[in-house]
Design a protein around this nucleic acid. Structure first.
Length: 517
RNA sequence: GGGCGCGUAGCUCAAUGGUAGAGCAGCGGCCUUUUAAGCCGUUGGUUCAGGGUUCGAGCCCCUGCGCGCUCACCA
């Protein structure tokens, strides 16, 4: 029972609720009567304020009470709705002592109130609603964490705001309710995604939805989540990428498709990894990875321009310029320049392994050559990619879905985009030769061994689709959460996901007897 | 999974091994233009959990849980 968990402080609010009911006032009425947003009321007043024949701005406002200042014969309150805050002014002359006392005795911080009256400007200069009538629309039984804003030199200074990350993420509704800057992140997030859609829609891409529950996972190197369909008695995986389904659609004739949705990867959780995350993938027939590079830099810079009004963003201590063209560094050349290693001179894993040992880079014995190159990139290339950079031409053995470079069978046409040393997206000229694809799947099986879940499983139906003829194309996958992190200057992915995954608490584990292995 | 750090009132934080505190929030007063309102008074604690050392533990030790940072795994 909720009531059983209440502290004395919370009981107190419940008592007020009971008192209201006893007086015939419903604390959760069915209808509301708000007709104007806070910001709109203020704007309308300011427009008419100095007009010679201004008519009074008469409105009914509604929102959550964020501050109350009772002063005996008058009261001030601030309420907040999605447009912002506005002050309410209650005077005994206007309302009578009884009504004023009713406000003082029954309304708390966090309650939802509606009030009608006329807008005016106080002596201190704040546009305010002079309340002629008010009523409760939802009583809050639990108190929100106390905080107050002070305006110093035009800047809002928060006092004692809710800041403990665990409390904030476990009770995101409270975090959002009291921290407007957190709400702002998610408004920006929505705008970013909308802007991506606009960009792609305008270029003839069709937005599609493909299965999240998949009998065979694929399209990325990651461990999947496993689930089970009872009636079909079928094991299913939660998708780790959209790739193989989207490319089937290109076979189907759409030529340009994209999807924005959730991927699930059963891997470590960190400041840049959440078990489920939002991915954007697109496929463009008759394009290659060079075309995708251009599309990517245009998309990201344009999204920034639309959402932030600038292509120059601040991330960490760096000022990052998203304006095209971005840096392009070929991996072999980059490693020659920055590490003094020509990877082409070491064509086998054994030979390259010796180089890694020389450079004191630790690696698990037996990993493929491509992974070793990945380690070199992490050490020498990626940290230098502060400004937006495409690293391109990847080793073939870690890229089973990408097409060879025509002149170099060990290298594929693939790039990854980096900003501030962190990967933003991954793209390639897509392999469209079904027999070659079949060979690659088999190779992956050998490289990784049977037991390793991250090896790319053979997908027979995908090969069949390709065998019907798949036009040449470029494809691209981008972590939307990462992009939101860059554009909102957040360094932890949990800050840009509304309900990030947190470990269960002990109590929850004990109560949940159905939990799986 | 490893290492380091943190966990005290609803929130933000104090407290040499020696009576658990402050501000805000709450509650009771005073106050007719306040705005971090103010002034006076006051309530509120399983110090994350369990064990140990000690005359005595918020503090020291052990175990567990959670969070943060970091490394590893992983794009």
């Amino acid at each position: 029972m909720l009531l059983d968990t209440f502290s004395e402080l919370e009981r107190n609010r419940y008592e007020k609720l009971l008192e209201m009911r006893a007086q015939g006032v419903e604390p959760y009425p069915t209808r509301s009567h708000k007709d104007t947003e806070a910001a709109e009321a203020i704007a309308r007043f300011e427009q008419t304020e100095n007009a010679p024949e201004s008519t009074p701005v008469q409105v009914t406002l509604g929102g959550r009470i964020r501050a109350i200042r009772n002063m005996g014969k008058l009261s001030f309150a601030h309420i907040e709705d999605k447009s912002g805050k506005v002050q309410l002014f209650f005077r005994v002359d206007e309302l009578g002592q009884e009504k004023l006392d009713f406000f003082a005795n029954h309304f708390d911080l966090g309650d939802f109130i509606e009030a009608s009256g006329t807008m005016f400007r106080t002596k201190r200069g704040e546009v305010t609603l002079q309340v002629s009538d008010f009523w409760m629309v939802a009583k809050a039984l639990l108190p929100l964490p106390a905080d107050k804003d002070e305006i110093v030199d035009g800047k809002v200074v928060r006092h004692s705001q809710l800041s403990d990350p665990e409390t904030r993420f476990r009770n995101r509704y409270v975090d959002l309710a009291v921290n407007p800057e957190v709400r702002k992140i998610f408004k920006l997030r929505a705008a970013i995604i909308k802007s991506i859609r606009n960009f792609l829609d305008n270029r003839g891409f069709l937005e599609v939805e493909t299965p999240i529950l998949q009998p065979i996972y694929g399209g990325a190197a990651a461990r999947p989540f496993l689930t089970y369909h009872n009636q079909l008695r079928q094991q299913l995986y939660l998708r780790i990428s959209f790739e193989l389904y989207l490319k089937r659609l290109i076979v189907g004739g759409f030529d340009r498709v994209y999807e924005i949705g959730r991927d699930f990867r059963n891997e470590g959780v960190s400041f840049k990894h959440n078990p489920e995350f939002t991915q954007m993938e697109l496929y463009m027939a008759y394009g290659d990875y060079h075309a995708i590079m251009e599309l990517t830099e245009q998309m990201v810079s344009q999204v920034a321009q639309e959402v932030l009004g600038t292509q120059i963003i601040q991330f960490d201590e760096h000022e990052i310029n998203l304006t095209p063209p971005w840096n392009r560094i070929q991996i072999r050349q980059g490693l020659m320049d920055l590490a003094g290693i020509d990877i082409a001179a070491y064509p086998t894993a054994e030979a390259l392994g010796e180089v890694l040992k020389e450079k004191k880079i630790n690696f698990k014995p037996g990993i493929p050559r491509g992974k070793m190159i990945g380690l070199l990139m992490e050490e020498y290339l990626e940290p230098t990619c502060i400004q937006p950079t495409f690293l391109y031409d990847y080793p073939r053995d870690i890229s089973p879905l990408a097409k060879n470079k025509p002149e170099d069978p060990n290298t594929v046409e693939r790039f990854e985009a980096f900003i501030s040393g962190v990967e933003l997206g991954n793209a390639f000229t897509e392999l469209n030769d079904p027999l070659e694809q079949e060979k690659r799947f088999s190779e992956m099986g050998r490289e990784y061994g049977e037991g390793e879940e991250e090896r790319h499983p053979m997908d027979e139906d995908y090969l069949r689709a390709m065998a019907y003829g798949m036009p040449p194309m470029g494809g691209f996958g981008m972590g939307v959460d990462r992009l939101v992190m860059f554009l909102t200057n957040n360094h932890n992915i949990r800050e840009v996901i509304l309900f990030p995954h947190l470990r269960e608490t002990f109590d929850e584990i004990e109560e949940d007897s159905t939990k799986q292995e």
